[in-house]
Write a protein that binds this DNA or RNA. Structure first.
Lengths: 199, 199
DNA sequence: CTATTTTGTGAGCAGTCGTTCAACTACCAG
DNA sequence: CTGGTAGTTGAACGACTGCTCACAAAATAG
């Protein structure tokens, strides 16, 4: 009974997500949101209560779709874990968009003072990524493509941190070649020991 | 001739800097700035033209004082370069402030879409840090505390990226122990080769 | 002293912010 | 059809935004 909802929640959250990524929470006004999603303030407030509510829903959707999706495709599923880690990194830059929207987790973490309610969502997303790295590294160790004594837990945190740093550099407009250098270095440092018995 | 300026430019920029670090460019209103600096809008606009102008002056001061100061103390001057790199990292977190203001460069890079004029200042600061790492690593190599074949340029970018990632985690409220783990890992990966002829 | 110049003060401007709400539209049960 | 209900619309609200400017205060020059 009653009128049917004319819009798709997932689509609206996707538009809002994109806007928040580009402009940040503070930088996206409700007028911007209205334009991006096509939703008028009434519908928006009926559903999400507030701008905050919409943002948290968008962050949740980002975790469930973007983050978990990328972790699955690049870190959990590939048969070659190291290649997966590499593609996880490289797929984070060179989107072609100008300026690069970066990562909603990274951007929100930095903006967190003004969006304290979002801290939990950010931490959850970061944990998902870290766990993905740990999974890939464990499998790589089993395959023998990384040293058997590699500290998986420590290396996962390391990769997560490096990844977040990359996303900062992306936002700073760093040339892609430099970002590739970072990716190469990351893999070199966890890959098979050099110096041991090279050629 | 004329009345004397009652306020100290460096002091005002320091207060503004702190405010921008905590709240970001967008999150710091002119009323906030007025309260933090003690400067009324008239004086502020007479000197800095706009909120943008003040921000750019604050970012410049941040580069010249905070960034260059820390690079000098931790990366250029220490006789033990690796210990310097470690203290450069550890001094970036555990400030005791809640929430941690993080780094103005990191925060501004992420917010850059809405502050495009600041991009140059951000890049300059990042370059200063990278050059500092390069200097420390070169000296470490000369001292033999890192492998002779270490790629200084590549490792510097690596450290810069990791450092920026750390500052993101700091803002996300990551526990200090984890941040220390990252620091330890960074030094372990550039330090003397393990596995070669240990014990 | 007066005239001139520089700086400080803060009320107030036009515009935008997040938010609300009364009128309106579309659907279902009876 | 009628009554009830859920959803849409957009004008409007008070609060706040970055910013301006007329005036007051303090310094120097003559």
């Amino acid at each position: 009974m009653g009128r049917r909802q004319l819009w798709d929640r997932a689509e609206v959250l996707a538009s809002a997500m994109g806007l928040f990524r580009r402009r940040g929470y503070q930088g996206a006004s409700l007028r911007d949101i209205e334009e991006a999603t096509g939703l008028h303030p009434g519908s928006l407030y009926r559903t999400f209560q507030s701008k905050d509510g919409l943002f948290q829903a968008a962050l949740e959707a980002y975790n469930e779709q973007v983050v978990q999706g990328r972790v699955r495709v690049h870190l959990l599923e590939p048969t070659d874990p190291l290649a997966g880690i590499r593609s996880f990194f490289t797929s984070a830059f060179g989107t072609g968009l100008e300026p690069d929207p970066g990562c909603l987790l990274t951007n929100t973490a930095v903006e967190s003072f003004t969006v304290p309610q979002a801290a939990a969502g950010v931490r959850q997303g970061l944990e998902t990524i870290e766990a993905g790295f740990a999974d890939a590294l464990t499998r790589a160790r089993a395959l023998g493509t990384v040293p058997a004594d590699l500290d998986v837990e420590m290396t996962s945190v390391q990769l997560l941190t490096l990844y977040q740093g990359l996303l900062v550099l992306v936002r700073a407009g760093t040339p892609i070649t430099k970002l590739h250098t970072v990716t190469d270095g990351a893999l070199a440092s966890i890959g098979p020991r050099k110096r041991d018995s090279d050629e």
